[in-house]
Write a protein that binds this DNA or RNA. Structure first.
Length: 502
RNA sequence: GCGCCGAUAGCUCAAUUGGCAGAGCAAGUGACUCUUAAUCACUAGGUUGCAGGUUCGAUUCCUGCUCGGCGCACCA
């Protein structure tokens, strides 16, 4: 490493030594900042020169011999700094000449306006707070505000998110939005009497969703454990125990492919409310998301991805089977499996004689065919917020049968912009029925569906103690943030997304 | 997992049919006490992702690998 260090870093280390030679401590302990950059800008009044101390990273540096102009950026924004030999003193100016782009500095002085009209801090003292030994991948902004250079390589942006954030304030905005979303959800549920709880990430059995898990091993117990794929079954155990409204916002882990909508670990909100059903949960979701959009943007309509999304409630509720009839022209009451395959054939891009028989629609059970028809024909059409309700019972093993039609369940999924955002149901609380549903899942597993759920005896035991009727919700937080931030890739709403090792 | 595309200086990008690897910014030295993509002069900066192959000669053509992007599959 030492001999491989680039000449750019060598130059910075050389300056570091010169600074030490000048008696400057290159890595300070603290700084008394009185104003952020934005506060300092706002402070300016014509004819006044208020004193401020600001601190931040040097993002532009223009030396002119015995004067130096710079821009210092902090979390609030950036402000110009003007340092003049006569005003900071010769010793201090020697230090200023050794500063580099990327260094962290504190500046104390008075706010004034230059003759070209930019509000600026006229430095009285400049303090080095931390020397940057590596050059920041900083771009330049021209008079029209257009960026030149900068960090564009997406791999570097995700791998070195610290550099991405340091150089691109707009990236930080996405994560500020994310934080406001999560904080709003907490407040919303807390205000409705929900209790936030934490359930196990390491689980002896995984359940609550259809997915392949990560496995791990506990040494002292010498047993295999799974990273959770959902919090569902534990949260409902809480409901059994009399915690009538609970939620958890946490990471789930699914051992599946990665693409711009999937990261192996992702953030899920799950909430459960005793004595309510899925219609209550629909209203809860409407209230939560319309409230969120209103609180974030002060409006019910937002423009994203070239479309306008209208969040004003109530949102349309459309039955799963109706939508398939409407968009695919298939009546699932009378259509045969062959009809479904015939519909899928021209629309599905699956390789015909694929090596993996599980990928060949010819071998799919009817439920999977239906699901595929829905995915291909219906999902892309669900642009505006829409509740899809009453899913077939075979693909909903944790939901109560629908009143009046036991082939369906009281379940809904919320779709926006063609993507599923939430999944919810009237929770199945009949332990004997739950056992039968698990057993059906076991059969599906034996038939080769490795995402089918496991039979959780302890969960059934919990239901046998009696679970009140309960409405439950799962909501993908990353997906919600993607929609609200207008980001097409999940990697742009996760600070440190999963990447292959360098 | 499959397909397509990509990887060149710290960053952003060039390089003609295969013929000495370049620019802007960043960096170094000098000049400059209201500049703002500061300016001017000079200087330095490269194992062209890795490993092979073809060729007198490879950034360029071929094969394999690594990493990434996009699409498909899986899924939320």
């Amino acid at each position: 490493m030492t001999e491989e260090r680039s000449f750019l870093e060598a130059a910075r280390r050389e300056k570091l030594e010169q600074l030490v030679g000048l008696g400057v401590a290159p890595f300070a302990y603290r700084y008394d900042r009185t104003h952020t950059a934005q506060q300092a800008l706002d402070l300016f009044r014509e004819g006044e020169e208020p004193a401020v101390s600001i601190a931040g990273r040097l993002v532009a540096l223009r030396g002119h011999g015995k004067t130096t102009f710079a821009h210092v950026a902090d979390q609030s924004g950036r402000i110009q700094v003007y340092a003049k030999l006569d005003e900071v003193g010769a010793g201090s100016y020697d230090m200023i000449k050794l500063l580099d782009l990327g260094d962290l500095v504190g500046v104390e002085g008075r706010v004034f306006k230059t003759k070209t009209g930019e509000v600026t801090v006229r430095a009285r003292t400049v303090t080095l707070l931390a020397k940057a030994l590596r050059p920041p991948p900083i771009g330049k902004e021209d008079a029209e505000g257009e960026q030149h250079g900068g960090l564009k390589d997406p791999e570097l942006r995700y791998r070195q998110r610290y550099a991405d954030l340091a150089v691109h304030p707009e990236v930080r905005k996405v994560f500020e939005l994310r934080a406001r979303v999560v904080s709003f959800i907490r407040r919303f549920l807390d205000d409705r009497g929900y209790l936030e709880v934490e359930t196990p990430v390491l689980q002896p059995l995984y359940g609550g969703a259809m997915a392949r898990p990560f496995t791990t091993h506990h040494n002292a117990l010498d047993r295999q454990l799974y990273l959770r794929i959902a919090t569902e079954l534990y949260l409902k155990r809480c409901i059994v125990g009399g915690m009538e409204r609970v939620y958890e916002i946490g990471k789930d882990f699914r051992n599946e492919g990665m693409d711009r909508q999937h990261n192996p670990e992702f953030t899920m909100l799950e909430s459960y409310e005793a004595y309510s059903d899925y219609t209550d949960i629909m209203r809860l979701v409407e209230d939560m998301i319309t409230g969120l959009v209103q609180s974030l943007f002060g409006a019910h309509t937002i423009e994203r991805f070239g479309h306008s999304f209208e969040f004003r409630a109530p949102w349309p509720r459309k039955a799963y089977l109706e939508l398939i009839r409407e968009h695919a022209g298939l009546d699932l009451g009378t259509a045969t499996d062959g009809d479904l395959r015939a519909f899928l054939k021209p629309r599905s891009h699956r390789p015909a004689g694929s090596a993996d028989p599980a990928l060949d629609p010819v071998n799919w059970p009817r439920t999977k065919l239906m699901d595929e028809v829905f995915k291909v024909a219906v999902e892309p059409r669900l642009e505006q917020p829409t509740f899809v309700v009453d899913y077939p019972i075979e693909i909903s093993p944790l939901a109560k049968p629908k009143r009046g039609d036991p082939t369906l369940t009281e379940r809904f999924e919320l779709f926006v912009n063609g993507h599923e955002l939430a999944n919810a149901f009237s929770e199945l609380n009949d332990p004997d029925d739950q056992r039968r549903r698990f057993e059906a899942q076991l059969k599906a597993r034996e038939a080769g569906d490795d995402e089918a759920q496991q039979l959780d005896e302890d969960y059934i035991r919990a239901l046998e103690y009696g679970m009140p009727p309960t409405g439950g919700l799962g909501l993908g937080v990353d997906r919600l943030v993607m929609l609200l931030a207008g980001e097409a890739s999940i990697r742009d709403v996760i600070l440190f997304p999963m990447l292959r090792p360098e």
